[in-house]
């Protein structure tokens, strides 16, 4: 069957974090996220990690686990691997933190370090640097989440041949309290590694394709959200 292989899964959710091959089930419930220790994902020291905002650390960690799970975390030459991430709130919490450094003295204490992370795509740049990923990368926000627009876009890119491989996922830390609005999505991040034909020994969690209307099809069935897709991937891997 023609399709795009899912070769790696990585996540951070309220119930834990890690690689798909280390778990039999997946859930993305509401609740506080676990503390992230960079040495769990990065073999070399990564002092910048602690300086990043929470949203960046979260997404970067899930990306790192997906690359580890796919056997692609080690590299010597840059690779044409892309990343398409979806989010609802993006770095809104960082935006608030940054602007609070502007207010007290009309900008004289504005933090350049925080401002660097006030873009929803900043952490994709961090991932690109850390893992040598030179393919297309950007963030997509849907008008009515949670949906699969980011995954559709990632599939478009790899099917068209823009990239050799592509990571696609979702990442959110929730809606900052200052807005007084409930979060629409639970906190957490999960990323998938997508490849046409892996050249190395790696099993596939299953295959994805787009039907003529752009619907996402996993192993022949339409899927509607990321959580269900990951659950099906792990169930399929268990019985493969």
């Amino acid at each position: 069957m023609a399709g795009i292989n899912i070769t790696g899964i990585g996540w951070v959710t309220a119930v834990g974090m890690g690689c798909g091959r280390d778990y039999e089930t997946f859930a993305m419930p509401w609740g506080p996220l676990p503390d992230i220790n960079p040495s769990d994902m990065f073999k070399k020291p990564y002092p910048n990690f602690r300086r990043m905002d929470e949203y960046s650390r979260l997404g970067l960690t899930a990306i790192a686990f997906a690359l580890i799970d796919a056997g692609l975390s080690e590299w010597t030459r840059e690779r044409n691997i892309g990343i398409i991430a979806s989010t609802v709130y993006g770095c809104l919490g960082t935006d608030v933190d940054y602007y609070k450094t502007v207010i007290p003295d009309r900008g004289s204490n504005a933090s350049p370090a925080l401002f660097s992370y006030t873009l929803a795509n900043s952490y994709l740049g961090e991932a690109a640097i850390r893992f040598g990923l030179t393919g297309t990368n950007y963030v997509i926000t849907e008008q009515h989440p949670p949906g699969l627009a980011g995954l559709q876009t990632a599939l478009d890119h790899i099917i068209r041949g823009d990239v050799e491989k592509i990571l696609s996922g979702i990442s959110d830390v929730g809606c900052p309290e200052v807005f007084g609005e409930p979060s629409k999505v639970p906190p957490g991040a999960v990323f998938l590694m997508l490849e046409k034909s892996p050249a190395r020994e790696i099993s596939s969690y299953g295959k994805l394709c787009l039907d003529p209307k752009g619907r996402v099809i996993y192993n022949g069935s339409e899927i509607y959200d990321f959580t269900t897709l990951v659950q099906k991937c792990l169930a399929g891997a268990r019985y493969a």
């Binding site: 929803a120 795509n121 990368n137 950007y138 997509i140 926000t141 849907e142 008008q143 949906g147």
Partner: peptide, 12 residues
């Protein structure tokens, strides 16, 4: 149909 937003800094 619902819309999406692309966010990629100054190349958005």
């Amino acid at each position: 149909s619902n819309g999406i937003c692309v966010s990629a800094s100054c190349a958005s």
